[in-house]
Simulated scan of single mutants.
Amino acid sequence: MTQVHPTRSLPGTTSARADAQPHFVTRAIGSSSLRVFPLALSGNVFGWTADDAAATSILDTFAEGEGNFIDTADSYAAGRSELMIGRWMRERRNRDAMVVATKVGKSRENPGMHAEAIKRSVTASLSRLGTSHIDLLYLHIDDESVDFDETLLAVDELIGEGKVRYFGGSDHTGNRLIQARIACGQMGVAPMVAIQSHYNLLHRQEYETGLAHVAAIQGLGMMPRFALASGFLSGKYRQRADLASNPRGHDAAKYLRRKGFKVLNALDEIAEEHDTAVATIALAWLLNKPGVAAPVVSASRATQVPELLAAARVHLTRHQSAELDRASAY
């Protein structure tokens, strides 16, 4: 399920510099035909901690580093994230080179998973993104107040109309994914190809002891969200004073404890061995896990992007992976 993608000369670089970079491997998203750089750039900070200029610079740096997978949602900054991404693709004329994922279900205008809410949400997202289709649509919530049949039929209609290519789940339990697959089979509609779930070095048990097995059986591509534990696994939060320097720092406060420091120490050692950033190693660990297609990560500044992209070109040894497994054991 992997394919070596030859390195191209990048804008602003010499061919010699490009040739010196190691090759990376694209990954398929589940059973779909989508092939992506093994990292999804999240637009969750666009319109919040990243303004128009910052978002453009972040996206440019991501694309110049051969990133092609963008993840957003209709609820991010009340739709502004999609607008910023859409404007960037229009200005760069690169829509066909990008794999765009968005989510529906949490917007103030069209909440929930009723058929009409989904259809209205997708129509609005297509308009904001300035595109004719969404490559990967996530059901952002598991709305148990709505019969799965209604939700799945609505998505299948959108796929039949060419507005959505593939879809996946988010925040769904293993049992609900099984129910969805059975319902899809009974109705003869398109099944999920992907799942987005909370998974990182400090949050392993929920996925590894439940969802991982179901995802493997169903052949779902796994996109870990909170891949850097709200920035803690980048190493920028070492003491409580560091939390005040970032608007999202409070989310990382819960990791400032013995286990968190143990994991950071292991990351520090391995990052030094590879002469790379701590965040790079934390993402490389995820990319070593079965079924993981592309961790979802965000950046508030373009200067943060290269260390995220570098994870695709880092090869951890068996010993290094085992050391991180031990440090983060649950």
Rank of each mutant, 00 (worst) to 15 (best):
L287C: 09
G67F: 02
R17H: 12
S300F: 02
A40I: 10
Q218C: 09
V314L: 06
E150T: 08
R176D: 12
D52Y: 06
S145N: 11
L256A: 04
A252V: 04
A77N: 04
S121P: 00
G221A: 05
E269M: 11
I182N: 06
G86Q: 02
Y166C: 03
M113R: 10
N110V: 05
K254N: 00
S81L: 10
E150I: 07
T72L: 00
A28K: 14
A180W: 02
L211K: 09
E307Q: 15
W88R: 11
T317I: 08
G188T: 11
E157P: 00
T49H: 06
G43N: 03
Q205G: 10
R257E: 15
P22Y: 09
N94K: 05
A154M: 02
Y255V: 03
A271F: 09
L316T: 03
A53Q: 15
K289D: 09
S321P: 01
N44F: 12
R27W: 03
D96S: 14
D71S: 07
D147Q: 11
E91T: 11
V45M: 08
N94R: 12
E269N: 10
F62D: 00
I182V: 13
L34Y: 05
E66K: 11
A16Y: 10
L286Q: 12
M187R: 14
K119D: 05
L264M: 02
A241N: 07
K119F: 02
P295D: 11
T131R: 11
T317D: 05
Y199T: 04
E161T: 08
S121L: 00
L39G: 07
D251S: 13
G249N: 06
